[in-house]
Write a protein that binds this DNA or RNA. Structure first.
Lengths: 346, 346
DNA sequence: TTGAAAGCGCTAACAT
DNA sequence: ATGTTAGCGCTTTCAA
């Protein structure tokens, strides 16, 4: 009987020795494979318990080429990450599903540089640290798909794919709904000239949402002004807002690509002495809990970020296991009317 | 010469074969150990490059008992996580240091249940998934220290330790400063009756900060009212605020344990028809970027969350490597005066 | 300076 | 039903 080395953590052989069986018997028991007698199973389980043993992730990974971890790499700068909770909400959705399945989430936050991002994925893949990755923030001409294919790293994308789905994609149903409702809401309030402040052009959803916006605006024969924030920062949103508000015919309502930009927009409007919603109506996107706390409470397009994260996690793991996906429904984006929108001044 | 199996990823033997050397030579080259001839080194490096090979993390971990990953487990509910960016900011600080050192961050978000948390740590340790963990949110009678000692999992704590430092602790210098400045600021504005809304009692910093508050208030002979929010949610903060404001002698200023609670407090005050800062001054804690965007812009105690995260990461890795810590300085908490504080109405 | 070989802890054929 | 054994890909003595 192999004595357990002092100081070392117990291994499968320690368990086997204590239970008086072979290591393969232990392996079978803990993995529910092969056939084992009930009495043996109990003895093994007892020993496992007594020794507080868990299989070494490294050994299992080495042997079975599965790490039970999935990766995520974010190219957002730390500042942006702390500014906009969008990413954290997604992560909590993902973890909500991953945790019960005993999967870990390996996070890499790299700088803005594309090169750092590539390196992060390569390490994840080549060092075999994760079984797959979840991609967010789909980009136009996204290089990650090629990279991941070369690395043979399974992936799932949350969001709008750049072109034909290169990897399984997770999106809410009725994509157009929320934004369309928002435009209708503004039109019905009597707005005739509305602006849309979108994020950087390299995001696929930027163009996608802008199209939805324009189409909805056309249906209501609204005149539109399109602005692009150079990034998702408060400064970017403020600059775009300033631009819109210095127009000769300035819009009476502005929609933003996310809630934080909307807040920055409201702040910028105020600096110009404008009242929201008196002089300017504002609509956000995401429906962060925060929106209900500020003054005026933010009208916004609610997005089921947690649902998106959950389904992405489930989809990826199902894909890895070759099992069918059994995922909860994601709520469609929908308008949440609060106080930052009102009829324009006559 | 061992042929590289089609479909499989290259292994160290493929590299060795291509370079015409032994695997141990390759190992020595990539790890800068032992002595190798310059010419051999070049051939190996060439082969590594040609094959795009990286060592398998699992194999390295199995062999050397080091995973180059550190873990973090958060007991916050997903809702709370999305509500308060505090945690994300810490993470971005941590990642900022971890990434360049080629360390990964394995995240586990477990529910509120203490048991899930224990399991998460146990898995991290027993499965040898990480080399150490970073702890946040120090609790009174924190059970994690015992647990981690038993698991022999190195750890670093960000925050105020519950008792004598059980593990290395990372804190900002001049802990008392920010909150003390805030009280002084209110006193100098003419406030005589101020409230402090703290978070749940199980957090160590709750009592710690309350003591700072009380002491500062005493020095300025302010009368105080102490409230406890049952949790860090908007509802908790709102309820505590309501309680304070329904007092016969209601405070003219309220300080909150964090910015999000302060925002919820302002919102609650407004629901009672109170103007901030006209009828009530409000002070937050953390100085999230958000605070500069809301109306009124939030006076708050700034905390160097990113610095805390960075130093924690550096400290833990240094500890693991048995190397001395060379960490950047963390800024002390300091008051950031904006617009949510003003002289009380006469 | 280099290489052979023994494992790290586990899983899965294959025997028994 | 159970055990033996050959690796998974790497690091590290130890010899040559």
């Amino acid at each position: 009987m192999a004595a357990r080395r002092a100081g070392g953590r117990p291994t499968i052989s320690d368990v086997a020795a204590l239970a008086g069986v072979s290591v393969s018997a232990v392996s079978k028991v803990v993995n529910n494979k092969g056939s084992i007698a009930e009495s043996t199973r109990r003895r093994v389980l007892d020993a496992v318990d007594k020794l507080q043993w868990s299989p070494s992730a490294a050994a299992v990974a080495l042997r079975s080429a599965r790490t039970r971890a999935i990766g995520m790499v974010s190219r957002r700068s730390p500042d942006l990450l702390s500014f906009d909770p969008h990413f954290s909400v997604l992560i909590s959705g993902i973890e909500r599903e991953l945790a019960p399945m005993d999967y870990g989430l390996l996070l890499h936050i790299v700088g803005e540089e594309e090169d750092a991002e590539r390196r992060a994925y390569r390490r994840l893949a080549e060092e075999r640290r994760v079984d797959g990755v979840i991609l967010t923030e789909s980009l136009v001409r996204d290089v990650r798909f090629d990279l991941l294919r070369r690395l043979r790293l399974p992936a799932v994308l949350i969001g709008t794919p750049w072109r034909d789905d290169p990897v399984p994609t997770v999106r809410a149903p009725e994509q157009e709904r929320g934004l369309t409702e928002a435009v209708e809401h503004l039109a019905s309030l009597g707005h005739r000239r509305v602006a849309y402040v979108c994020g950087p052009e390299d995001r696929v959803h930027t163009g996608f949402r802008r199209r939805i916006f324009e189409e909805a605006a056309r249906r209501h024969t609204l005149s539109t002004v399109l602005l692009t924030a150079s990034d998702f920062t408060a400064e970017g949103a403020a600059a775009a807002t300033d631009e819109a508000l210095s127009l000769d015919e300035r819009p009476t309502a502005v929609l933003y690509a996310n809630d934080m930009m909307a807040l920055a927009g409201i702040s910028a409007a105020r600096r110009r002495g404008l009242d929201v919603p008196g002089d300017l109506s504002v609509v956000g996107y995401d429906d962060l809990p925060l929106g209900a706390l500020v003054q005026p409470r933010l009208t916004t397009v609610g997005q089921d970020l947690v649902g998106l994260g959950r389904v992405a996690a489930l989809t990826l793991v199902a894909e890895l296991d070759g099992a069918p996906v059994d995922a909860p429904a994601i709520s469609p984006p929908r308008l949440v009317v609060r106080e930052s929108t009102a009829a324009p001044r006559a």
